[in-house]
């Protein structure tokens, strides 16, 4: 006999939204709980990171590339968001085990809440980015290109969600996934055009780099924001053609992997 669990009557969609928002807010609050500077760390961490790298590569190595610093800043902020969101998303089930074990709550809301929390921190960073962009570098992107930039940020978020939908249930079963992911994140950091412009890379290797979805996001997001340009239609079509099936696949995977998952927590 097949097992079934049915609830008659409507399920509340609004409930999911409020839960996600509440959990994300709590995560953000708890992240710097007890620290003196509190939420200031959200800005301070990526910018100290940026200042160090900028000092090494721009001042010490005399990098004369045009707009090197601002490209580095955008790259770092996007990469930090990616790193933070995937790490949080992957660990979300384990971190929220105390809730999942006691409440029948849609599994995806837990993942989304954890990644949204990173997205909020990313949002704070963007404010600083725009201040730098206009105030220090005197680059004023038009609203259209800001919108395009946000489109790429959304795509980046989409990638982290796809990753988390697959990684979160796996992490419950294989706990060394976080160690592996840490190493892979290091690889990704150097395999993406963050420290160097992609034009510095000779061609056979460059097309290899383009297989990295982060390269695509970083390059086009910078183009939009710094150069105010939008090109390479073929890139976008290929990306979307891969992204949508991946998203659907990850949703199906999460649904399948959620069965009997709580018992393992």
């Amino acid at each position: 006999m097949k097992a079934s669990y049915e609830i008659e009557g409507s399920q509340n969609r609004k409930y999911n939204r409020e839960t996600i928002w509440m959990l994300a807010k709590t995560d953000l609050k708890m992240r710097y709980e007890g620290s003196v500077l509190g939420i200031v760390w959200v800005f301070l961490k990526p910018f100290s990171n940026f200042l160090i790298i900028n000092f090494v590569f721009s001042t010490l190595f005399h990098n004369q590339q045009k707009n090197y610093s601002i490209n580095l800043l955008i790259g770092l902020i996007l990469y930090n968001f990616f790193q933070d969101s995937t790490t949080n998303g992957m660990a979300s089930f384990v971190n929220k085990a105390h809730i999942l074990k006691k409440i029948n709550i849609p599994k995806w809301t837990i993942i989304i809440a954890s990644t949204i929390h990173s997205a909020i921190a990313f949002g704070f960073n963007l404010i600083i980015l725009f201040i730098f962009l206009c105030g220090y570098y005197h680059i004023f992107p038009t609203p259209l290109y800001i919108l395009i930039f946000f489109y790429y940020a959304l795509l980046l978020y989409g990638i982290t969600v796809v990753f988390s939908f697959i990684a979160a249930p796996l992490y419950v079963r294989i706990r060394d996934l976080n160690q592996i992911w840490e190493v892979l994140l290091q690889v990704l950091f150097f395999a993406s055009p963050i420290l160097y412009p992609i034009t510095n890379i000779p061609y056979p290797v460059r097309s290899f780099l383009y297989a990295n979805p982060l390269t695509y996001i970083l390059e086009h997001a910078r183009f939009a924001l710094v150069e105010n340009s939008f090109s390479h239609w073929n890139h976008h079509i290929i990306f979307i053609c891969i992204f949508i099936p991946a998203l659907i696949g990850s949703i199906l995977f999460l649904k399948r992997a959620s069965r009997n998952l709580i018992e393992l927590l």
Partner: peptide, 13 residues
């Protein structure tokens, strides 16, 4: 409560 999945059987809520 819908936290564990049953192996067999039918539950209607």
């Amino acid at each position: 409560a819908g936290i564990y999945t049953p192996d067999e059987g039918r539950i209607t809520v």
